[in-house]
Each structure stands twice: as C-alpha cells, then as structure tokens.
C-alpha cells in the first residue's frame, strides 16, 4: 500500500471553533458543549475460527477493555466473519451461540485429572498436565511401538495412540504437527478442520 504521501490531521475543538466553519453556520459553542456530554466507548474486533466442527467458520470477536491492568476484558459479541470464504459471515445456531460457551459457568478453563480409582476431578497446572501426557505417551509408545511387521519389513509405527489437531491451526502448525507425530511413528492423526 502506498503510504508515502498519506497525511493525518487532528480534528480538535479549537479547529471546530474556527471562523470558516462558523461562516457555514456551524455554532461552535453548542456543538462543543455537546462533546463534553459524550463518553467514548472502546472495543476491539479480532478474527478467529469457530472451534466446534470441521467446517471451521471464520468469526469476528468483539471485546471491551483496553488491556490495561485495572480493566477487565470481556467478550461482548461474536459474529460470522464476512471476509471468510468458508462462511461469508454466516454461522450455524451453535456457532452463533459461541459467546455463551465462552462465558459458560461450566466451561473447562484449566487441566483437570481424575486419578485411577478416584471419583473426583482434581485441578492441575499446565506443566503437570503436559508432563503427564508426555509420560503416558512414552509408556504407551515403549509398550506398543512396532519396528518390524511379521514379515520382517521395517514399519516403525505406533498405532495405539491417536492425535486430534485443532481446527484453528494454520498450514504451518499443521506441517509441524505432522512432522512431530510422524517422527514418533504415530499413524492415527486427524484434525478437527478435516472435511
């Protein structure tokens, strides 16, 4: 985009009180008094992908809060992204209710574990969760990795664990996911975005 010559200017109360605009019938005092009765509202609009199904509709998320420490950010509205060629601004009823899922009291917000034999779910940290997943993966892979099939052909496969990738992952994330999982020998790889 050619920005070299684009100029910016300020519209300030002093400028609106100028004589030229007054010549055209602009009454600065009343107009500027009105300005002081108004309060500015701020929101941001960001793109994301609906997490539900494999269609992966684009959404626009509106939130309030200016990211300063003492302001609470809150999602106030979600709508379909009109620029996304998949859904062109439309959403299914479930997707249209996304905001309620995000703000649901029952929404899972941190990793939880139910130990073998226990009846209660216990909150754990992300580090603990990732360590546990890694240990489970290693144990399962050590027990079930197949280096050669019964005919003696090298296959190096691990078929007892599967992986489901996110629908919001881009090409690059998808590439790294497959690289990583294939290196482990995993054969059951799928993505939420698969159609």
């Amino acid at each position: 985009m050619n920005m070299n010559r684009r100029q910016f200017f300020k519209v300030c109360s002093a400028g609106l009180g100028g004589s030229s605009i007054a010549l055209m019938g602009f009454s600065p005092n009343a107009a500027l008094a009105e300005v002081r009765t108004f309060k500015l509202a701020r929101a941001t609009e960001t793109r994301n992908i609906c997490p539900y199904c494999s269609v992966s509709c684009g959404v626009l998320i509106y939130s309030t809060g200016d990211k300063s420490k003492n302001s609470q950010s809150e999602i106030i509205h979600i709508e379909g992204d009109p620029d996304n060629p998949v859904n062109r601004g439309t959403l299914c009823p479930k997707g249209a209710g996304l905001r309620d899922m995000i703000q649901s009291q029952n929404r899972l917000k941190w990793p939880e574990v139910r130990e073998a034999g226990a009846s209660e779910w216990k909150k754990i940290s992300w580090n603990e969760a990732l360590d546990r997943i890694a240990k489970h993966m290693k144990a399962d892979r050590d027990a079930n990795f197949v280096a050669q099939n019964k005919d003696g052909v090298t296959v190096n496969r691990w078929t007892t664990t599967g992986f489901l990738a996110s629908s919001a992952a881009q090409n690059e994330t998808g590439y790294l996911t497959v690289k990583m999982l294939r290196a482990l020998g995993m054969t059951s790889i799928d993505t939420q975005a698969r159609i």
Binding site: M1, M3, R6, F8, F38, K39, L40, A41, R42, A43, T44, E45, T46, R47, L60, Y62, D66, D81, P82, D83
Partner: peptide, 19 residues
Amino acid sequence: RARCTLCDDPGVVAYLGIE
C-alpha cells in the same frame, strides 16, 4: 474487516464510539 485501512498493519484495531 477488522484491519487498518490506513497502514495495512495486521495488528488488532480498536473501535471507538460514543456511548
């Protein structure tokens, strides 16, 4: 939508309106 038309920077844009 949701992108600055003045500089084309892909960062987040704010929407300011009068309450």
